[in-house]
Structures are given as C-alpha cells and as structure tokens.
Simulated assay, not measured.
Amino acid sequence: MSARAVVPVVVVLLTALPVLALCVGQALRASGRRGAPGAPGAPAGTWWRRTALVVVLAVVALTPTVAATQSGGARVGVQVWFVVDRTGSMAAEDWGPGDPVVRGPGLPAVPAVQRLDGVRHDVVQLTRDVPGAFYSVVAFADEAGTQLPLTDDATAVRSWAQTVTQEVTAGSAGTRRDRALEVLQRSLQDAQDRDPGMVRLVFYLSDGEQTADEEPGSFTAIAPLVDGGAVLGYGTAAGAPMRQHDGSLDPDAPYIPDPQDPSRPALSHADEAALREVAAELGVPYVHRDGPTPTADLVADVDVAAIAADGRADLSTHRDLVWPFALVAGVLLAAEAWAWTRSSSRLRGRR
C-alpha cells in the first residue's frame, strides 16, 4: 500500500498534528478527572473518539492506494529501430549487382555500387515488410545520434534512407562499431518505459569495420530490450576503395588514398566476424547482404501476439483504497453527531 497524496503531505501534517495533539491532551486530562464528582468537560471516551476521527480523516486526505494489474491494458504493436553505419567505409564499392570494374593493377574487380546503397535498399524494404509500425533511425559515424525519433510515418523513413550519405571524409575520426550503443540503449529504454506492451525490433546495418584502437563495448546489456531483428552485413573481405565525400554529391569524387601509399586508393574490408559477434550479443541472427534481394524473411517469424503474451501488455496501475477509511470516518462522525444531540437535549431539559 502507498499514498497518492491528493492533499500535499505537508498540508495534512500541519493541519492534523495540532488537532491530534489537542484531542490526545484533552483525552488524557479527562482520564485524570475520571471519578471526580461534577467534573466539567467531555468524558475521555469522547476525546479518544475525536482522536480516532482526526487520524482517519488524515489517512483519507493522503489517499492510500494499492497496486493493481489491468490485463491487456497497454497498447500492443511493433517498434523498429534502424541502426545505420554512415562511416566512410560504407562508401566502399563492393555491394550489389553493378558491372564489375577494375580500377588498377592489383585491385579486385568489384561492382561499382556502394555498401550504403545496400543500406538504402534494405531500410526501404524492411519498412514495407513491417507496415503500420513505429520506426526510428539511429545513425553513427564519428558520433552517434537519433536521425528520426519513433514515428509511424513510413514515408519519412524512406525519405531519410534515400538521401542518407556517408560522413564527410575530412571529419572522420575512426570507426567504432559500438558508437551507437549508448544512444540506442537510451532510446530502447525510454520506449519500453513509455509503451511496455510494444514489440521492439532492431536492425543493425554495417560492414563491421573498426579502425579505432579502443575495445568496442558489448551490446549484451540491451539484449533484454530487443525482441527481434537482425544484424545486416555489407561488403566483402577482399575490400574495395571508397570515394571521398565533402558534402556535395559528386559521383566522380577522388578515392580516399591509402595512408601508407597515397598513390593507391585505400581499401575497406568488411568484418563479418565482428558483425556476428554483435548479432550474438543482441540475440538476433546475422545476415550477409550482397544484393537487393527480398527482406521479408527477416521479419517472417515476428508474431506480435505471441511475444506480447509474456505479460508485457498487462498495465500496472494503482487503485485508490479510500472507501474503508471514509466509512470509518462516517461512523465516527455519526457517533459525534449523536453525542452532540444527546448533550444538547440534556441542556434544554435542565433549563
């Protein structure tokens, strides 16, 4: 049991304590006068009854409540998070069905389609595969941030996906696959607190490459907040060059040079082992994406009703428990009125 305190506790205490002290004092004094013939004043029983009335009214003012559970009271649906890698390596041109291109001696012949094009395709397709859901986009490069808060506007998600670009090359500060972890955890926790009945899916889209020296953090801590989804991997182990990006949309921008040999373009190598590790930590499957194939099978096993049957849709509430105390207060007030009526009748009789 707890108190909802419709009347502020301070007000209740400032009002009830002085009256309570008066009633108790009068009751003790009346008890001391017991047996004295003709002793003036109300008897001790009257004052103890008034003491009880003050206590009960104070409890009513504090509004006691008890916890209650409303079965199926929380709204049920699907919330989808797209965690998108926007680092420079996602511009590597080794994804999809593009015509193979040989860019120089010793460089692999690869499709001239960026990994980020694969991300664009998959985000749009997954949005269509999970209609009527709420969607959020968290993107990361040199830092992470929420690009799109939870919204039921699928058009906004598709518009974002179709216009997303890699980070500006000059501002790159190294790649960390856990860069979005803190932002994602906060977003998932807020969503669970606000809508506990929802089913939460997370799709992590990246090539898994890490160039920063720090040890990446684990996604294990947020696994209890995730009901499904997948880690989607892009790129090849052989690697591919990446074009520089200065904020403009120049398709013929120069390639990022190799730090060891500036005369050659740098190659980015996808790290599927790292992506499988992220998938294991999240408790979702890993899927390598090498072309614009359907994505419906990634959400085919999502059964909202079955997942919500774990009790998450039960809404925890509090029910006021005022009536027993109000009933006692009514009885005490009735007794007080009856005693006052008797006393008044005696006074009139003596006159």
Rank of each mutant, 00 (worst) to 15 (best):
G132M: 11
Y204N: 11
G41I: 03
G239N: 03
A237G: 13
V278H: 00
V302E: 03
A223L: 08
S206F: 12
A5H: 15
G330P: 09
A270S: 12
V102S: 15
S263K: 13
Q114K: 11
G118D: 09
V110E: 14
S263T: 13
A92I: 05
A39K: 14
M198R: 14
A39Y: 03
F82V: 02
A309D: 13
G247Y: 02
L201G: 04
E143W: 14
P224E: 03
D142Q: 15
L14P: 00
T146M: 07
D117T: 12
V278N: 14
R200H: 08
A68H: 15
H121D: 14
T211N: 04
A329D: 04
W340N: 00
A112H: 10
A161N: 09
L184R: 09
G72S: 05
H269T: 12
F134N: 11
R120E: 02
G45H: 07
E281P: 05
A154G: 15
V138M: 09
L20A: 12
G35D: 04
S31F: 13
A273D: 11
L150M: 08
V202N: 09
I307M: 04
G98P: 01
V101F: 05
M198I: 13
P131Y: 02
L225K: 10
V102K: 10
G118E: 08
Q147E: 08
L282C: 12
S136N: 11
A156C: 02
Q260W: 01
A313T: 07
T165G: 07
G247T: 08
D246F: 05
V183G: 04
C23P: 07
D258Y: 00
Q147H: 05
P257F: 15
H288A: 12
V24F: 05
G330L: 08
L181K: 08
A240T: 07
L327V: 13
A112K: 06
T46N: 07
R50L: 08
R243H: 00
A296Q: 11
V287Y: 03
R319W: 08
